[in-house]
Design a protein around this nucleic acid. Structure first.
Lengths: 334, 334
DNA sequence: ATGAAAGCGCTAACAA
DNA sequence: TTGTTAGCGCTTTCAT
């Protein structure tokens, strides 16, 4: 069933009547091969459809021209970054390898494990998305996107989470809301902390007290946001508006609201964060805070390439956030 | 600058005072290791943060528990598939490795090259997205999504492109359009051919002639669709509606229309195909044909896993398409 | 200009 | 139970 086993360098060598060493030289464009030999070997390569095994090659050469993007899971956030990185890689000559575990929020420390698994052999450098265990000591250059610690240690790309959260909260307040709930993100991520800080700052500035009973942790994922959302909206003195720390949990909040018989935005205003494409698809379309995710992916990739090339650069890039008005927020009905 | 070089099995062995073979046994859970040894080695592994190199391991063992998804580029279509595959991989125990070249539509034969590069070593099986050169003879099991040849050779997952195209065309006709343009996809893809067939079929059924001057090739990408779109809309007898063979080119058609001073849908109706999230973000939101991309990704992954496990299964999965009404189509103004 | 041989980090027989 | 010995497919000195 398995049919033809891969054609390997040895096959090419035998067919062309040369040694594997010579084939290797041809494949890698090394000097010291006669024109005639080169031509013949190249013909055999084309004919047999030979391509060097990335695994074997990288084991020996420690330079692969492949860049890694390590994510816990392929979901809207990471795939937007991927699109950005993909468009930026075009001009660099590198190829891209995105690696993810089984999903299910991947266990703690996944970033370190994936990195050791791939670095030193397969990849020349890595972008790690939302890592929590950040170690500076890795064999290869690493750039973090939206990490645990904020701008320390690793070179980092993120967006202005604090300002964005202020924007979101101010929007709700401007609409007339006073009882505003906050559904936070993953406690281990800097972005989640900054978004909560921004929320509290804006409330404070407006002279509004924060009811701690209306502050919950949603964990950035629909499944983990569901329970807290139910508790929040099930209260007798439930909020008239909820700021969810990312779009996925905001969408979940809307789903729970509908399930409890409410209408968004009439009975409840909801605002998210990220502006992943899915936010526009929700019904109603979700008002949210835009993070330039594709740009962030592209910048992370450029930063990584510069790091590999040994170019010194500012080690922290913070991109701006902005309010995106759609249909999930309205003045409170009272 | 590179700091600590990766910790390898030899380091663990030396620290624990055993041979690398023993460490290997511990890492891979093989029998024949004393409890005390196992504990000690495990401690050292944890302490040093050791993780086996995927490259080295796979070179030797030819079983990696990693599944590959090979794409030409990370764009909305492939990333939707990725999301689906990612959610399906959770329960299987496999990890996911998505590989892409530099973008720029990757040269012809990329699928074969990527496959030889990774198969035989790094991955136990692969999903190839929109391949054009389909070869049955690869070292590992392969599933194709939306391939060149249609349901021959390779196990395949696709959607009902023909029926979807009929749906799209009928929608336009039902709105009262008679001069309908068609902006086709990549000629080397079966899906593009079927979508054109569906278009012609629906026109024929409605007794409408197809003006060949209004049929162009857009190539599925914004850049390649731009020129043909300009030609189509620049004509004196331009169409009142355009069916673009995928969302990305439909969005480009709308952009060109606006640039030429038209309003969508007042002056021109546009319908797309795919229903990638981006279609909902366009202005106006794009009416389109839904392909269940995430499901397709999930099904492709399940099919691949069954193939690896040697389970026989239907080798071709065709999922249904459906019309998604948004705001880019209206009756012709006349 | 070419090939022989060593070895990258790991696993799998086989011996001890 | 453990260690020794071969490689996996490739690149890279170093002879020839």
């Amino acid at each position: 069933m398995d049919s033809t086993p891969r054609v390997k360098m040895e096959d090419v060598a035998r067919t062309a009547g040369v040694s594997v060493a010579t084939v290797s030289k041809v494949v890698n464009g090394r000097y010291g091969v006669a024109q005639a030999t080169l031509t013949r070997v190249q013909e055999v390569i084309d004919e047999l459809g030979y391509e060097a095994s990335l695994g074997a090659r990288s084991l020996r050469s420690h330079r692969t021209n492949v860049l890694g993007i390590l994510v816990a899971e392929f979901e809207p956030f990471s795939t937007e970054l991927l699109k950005g990185a993909s468009s930026a890689v075009g001009s660099t000559g590198y190829e891209l390898l995105a690696y993810s575990g089984g999903g299910r929020g991947a266990d703690v420390g996944w970033e370190r494990r994936y990195l050791s698994r791939l670095s030193g052999t397969l990849i020349d450098g890595a972008i790690i998305v939302t890592p929590t265990v950040v170690e500076a000591n890795t064999g290869v250059p690493v750039v973090a996107v939206d990490p645990h610690t904020g701008p320390t240690g690793l070179p980092t790309v993120d967006s202005d989470n604090f300002a964005g959260a202020v924007l979101a909260t101010e929007h709700l307040i401007g609409l007339g809301h006073r009882r505003i709930g906050f559904l936070g993100g993953r406690l281990d991520l800097e972005s989640a902390r900054l978004r909560e800080d921004g929320f509290r700052k804006a409330m404070d500035t407006a002279g509004l007290p924060v009811d701690e009973a209306l502050v919950a942790v949603g964990g950035y994922r629909p499944e983990t946001a569901d329970g807290p959302a139910r508790v929040l909206l099930g209260r007798a003195d439930r909020p008239t508006a909820v700021f969810a720390a990312n779009d996925l949990s905001a969408i979940q909040v809307m789903a729970v609201a509908v399930e409890l018989g409410m209408t968004v935005p009439d009975d409840l205003s909801v605002i998210g964060f990220d502006n992943v494409p899915e936010s526009a698809l929700a019904s109603p379309p979700l008002t949210t805070i835009n993070q330039p995710l594709q740009e962030m992916g592209a910048e992370a990739l450029r930063l990584l390439v510069d790091l590999i090339d040994g170019k010194e650069r500012s080690t922290h890039l913070r991109l701006p956030t902005e309010l995106v008005l759609r249909a999930s927020c309205a003045p409170p009905r009272h």
